[in-house]
Computed example of a mutant assay.
Amino acid sequence: MTELVYGFITGVLFGFFLQKGRVLRYDKQLAALLLKDMTIVKFMLSHIVVAMVGVYFLYDLGMVKLAIKPTILGGVIVGGLIFGLGWGLVGYCPGTSLGALGEGRLDALWGIFGMLVGAALYAEAYPFLKTSVLTWGDYGKITIPQVLAVNHWFIIVPFVAATIFFFRWLERKGL
């Protein structure tokens, strides 16, 4: 039950930050796809950095276990293309479509409908995909630090630094 409560609290906070960051707005989504406004990119990178540092810090303390999913390039590439196509067509990604609906934007229903249809199609196609696309480039449960045979902090610290420099560069460009 504790995990559900933590999940609920985390979800509420994430939704709050989505709304406060104005990334639920269609115009921000479109501007991000056109590379005219990097608010969404900065929002996503900020969350990735915070999560990366937080999860690995808790992992080092022995408070959490990592549940690494297998790296399957076929699934990642095909899934990414479908995700990107849907985002480009609808103007919302799955999380922002739910948040936008919460703000009363009914056009976000198209994004939610797309998620549900996509999940149903995936479930129906899974037996075929399991023996085809989901076997292409199957590297198993790996992480970048494992591939490079280094401690995870040797990846995290430079990534955080690169993100900070990237944000500063975007600021100078007015993005």
Rank of each mutant, 00 (worst) to 15 (best):
G140W: 01
F43L: 04
A161I: 13
Y26M: 11
G174F: 03
V64K: 03
F113R: 05
V150Q: 07
A120K: 01
R172K: 15
G80D: 09
F165I: 09
F17C: 07
F167V: 06
R172L: 13
I155H: 05
E124T: 11
G54I: 05
S46I: 04
I144V: 15
F83D: 02
K130M: 09
G62C: 06
Y92E: 10
L61M: 10
V150H: 06
I48K: 04
V55S: 08
V133K: 00
L45K: 07
C93S: 03
V55P: 00
F154R: 13
G91M: 07
Y26C: 02
R25I: 14
I77W: 01
H47V: 15
V117K: 03
G104V: 09
P145I: 05
Y122E: 03
F167C: 06
A32P: 01
L98S: 07
L170K: 05
L129P: 00
G80T: 06
V160Q: 00
I155F: 09
I144S: 10
L35M: 15
P70M: 02
T96A: 15
L129W: 01
W110C: 08
V147M: 08
G15H: 03
G114H: 10
G104Y: 06
T10I: 09
P158W: 09
Y56N: 15
R22Y: 12
V49L: 08
L45A: 14
